[in-house]
Computed example of a mutant assay.
Amino acid sequence: MKESDNEQYYKRGTLAVLGVLRDIERDGTPIMVSHARGQFISHILSVDKELLVIDYGSNDYDNQVTLEMRSLAITAEMKGAKVEFNLEQLHETHFGGLPAFSTPLPSELLQIQRREYFRISAPLDPIFYCHASWPEGGKARFRLQDISLGGIGVLVEGDMPENLVCGDLWRGMRLDMGEYGELQVDGQLLHVGTRTTVSSKNETVSTPRLSFSFTSLSAAQERQLQQIIFSLERVAREKAMRFR
């Protein structure tokens, strides 16, 4: 968006900024910390009127590089909105006896309400798969039914546990999209439903369907996924033109 278009989405002043960051902290929403030499996913550990404390990343080298940076961008996806703000520098501190980053509260941030994500159906040939693990243990393979930048819908192959809980986090889901490559994501289960179709024998076939939202995508993953969606859209459009 142009700067003028963004103006309506700015939160400025201590109380407005603090309110948004406290929501991110309370919900445990992942944040993406990006700078000129890399990026990593972290969480807000603490925030008050004076100080913002961010968890260290999992890689010691990345943490040391981050301390050298003088310009950082922070992004988070929360409740259908994207939050963005910039920081000049992070400093080393400790939180709960463990190393962490600290920085003064930003003076402003962007909170942009997302529109409905464009969702496209996955192809039937070749079939795209989602490999995951059931919350109670055991491997699962789903057929990818549709995909968007916000999440996926999958069809369950075989038996499904009865105690699935909406809101649960599913980590390390692997999306196998054939020639388009693979993507490993974390998802939150939004809905357990059923897809009903009619077979060639005029019989009603019901297949369990699960809907997931992505809890976080890196900038690279989002770009990759957007390219896949664009490609699938183009293929679907070309196929539709051939059958007109």
Rank of each mutant, 00 (worst) to 15 (best):
M1F: 08
Q8T: 14
R12L: 13
G13T: 09
L15E: 15
V17H: 07
V17M: 09
R26A: 15
S34R: 05
A36V: 02
R37N: 09
G38V: 01
F40E: 08
I41T: 15
H43V: 10
H43P: 04
H43Y: 14
K49S: 11
L52Y: 00
L52T: 00
V53N: 02
I54P: 00
S58G: 06
D60N: 10
T66L: 05
E68G: 04
S71T: 01
I74P: 06
K82H: 04
F85Y: 07
F85G: 05
L87C: 01
T93I: 04
H94K: 12
F95A: 06
G96N: 08
F101C: 00
T103G: 02
P104F: 00
E108Q: 14
L110G: 06
L110M: 12
L110P: 07
R114S: 14
R115D: 14
Y117L: 13
S121T: 09
Y129N: 01
C130W: 03
C130D: 06
H131E: 08
H131P: 01
A132Q: 06
S133N: 11
S133I: 08
S133D: 13
W134I: 05
G138P: 13
G150S: 10
L155K: 11
V156I: 05
V156N: 03
P161K: 01
L164R: 00
G167D: 04
M173K: 04
R174V: 15
L175C: 05
D176V: 09
M177L: 13
E179G: 01
Y180W: 11
Q184C: 15
G187F: 11
V192F: 12
V192D: 08
G193T: 06
T197E: 14
S200P: 00
S200W: 07
N202S: 12
N202R: 15
T204W: 04
F214R: 13
Q221D: 14
L225F: 11
Q226Y: 14
Q227Y: 10
I229Y: 06
F230H: 08
S231N: 09
E233H: 11
R234K: 11
R234G: 00
E238A: 04
A240S: 05
M241D: 02
F243N: 12
R244Q: 08
